[in-house]
């Protein structure tokens, strides 16, 4: 990365380009905010409006596949990045992903305690609260209380909660439990039940028959 050296020849030019463009967009945003051209809140707000376009429906596809294909689920739990690549899903901030599976006895939550590391290729951009200091600190200190009070998502006392800290080297996400009564649903129908929050671990998939095919 030293500037004096000529640009090395890379085999993966697309990734290289995407990194450079990402850097330019970041730089542009930082400059514009410094100059008062716009606020970060306004950009966040607009990005939020559109965030479903880029994000969690990809993770939902992976979850639905895991729910319907036990062998795929094994591969997903063994090497999430490779399993996602099978479905054509991957890219920046998804280099090493680990999927943790919710069961009747263990519930998982993801956080990035230091910044906002997040599995972009499957979940899109992180929501603002994920990046905010209160969530990052409190979910580590008192996960049960945070899930109950902040997310209206009480975890039964018989269930252990594990909180996983993502970093730039290793990003976690959650494989939620398949909703009861969903045996008759197709993979595509199942995907519509999977919410972003259920893959972060702060919510459940939609119940069957909720009609919330968002």
């Amino acid at each position: 990365m030293t500037e004096s050296r000529p640009e090395p020849i890379r085999t993966d030019t697309r990734l290289n380009t995407q990194e450079e463009i990402t850097a330019r967009v970041k730089a542009l945003e930082a400059l514009l905010i410094e100059k008062g051209v716009m606020t970060t809140a306004a950009v966040d707000r607009l990005a939020e409006i559109y965030e479903n376009e880029v994000g969690p429906q990809l993770g939902a596809r992976v979850v639905a596949r895991a729910w319907t294909d036990p062998e795929f689920k094994q591969r997903l739990l063994a090497d999430a990045s490779a399993a996602c690549r099978e479905l054509g899903i991957g890219g920046l901030q998804g280099e090493e992903m680990v999927v943790v599976e919710n069961t009747d006895t263990v519930h998982h939550v993801i956080v990035c305690t230091l910044c906002s590391c997040y599995p972009w290729p499957v979940l899109g951009l992180p929501p603002n609260w994920y990046k905010a200091p209160p969530f990052r600190a409190r979910i580590v200190r008192e996960p049960r209380t945070v899930l109950d009070e902040d997310f209206d998502f009480p975890v039964p006392e018989t269930v252990e909660i594990r909180v996983w800290d993502s970093s730039s080297e290793l990003r976690y996400w959650v494989l939620p439990q398949r909703p009861a009564g969903s045996e008759h649903l197709s993979e595509a129908e199942l995907a519509e039940l999977v919410t972003r929050d259920s893959m972060i671990g702060v919510g459940a998939p939609r119940p069957v028959g909720s009609g919330a095919a968002a």
């Binding site: 990402t22 542009l28 945003e29 950009v43 972009w120």
Partner: peptide, 12 residues
């Protein structure tokens, strides 16, 4: 959007 930066540029 196929990359997060696209969404960011759009929003800006």
């Amino acid at each position: 959007f196929s990359e997060p930066w696209e969404l960011r540029a759009f929003a800006m």
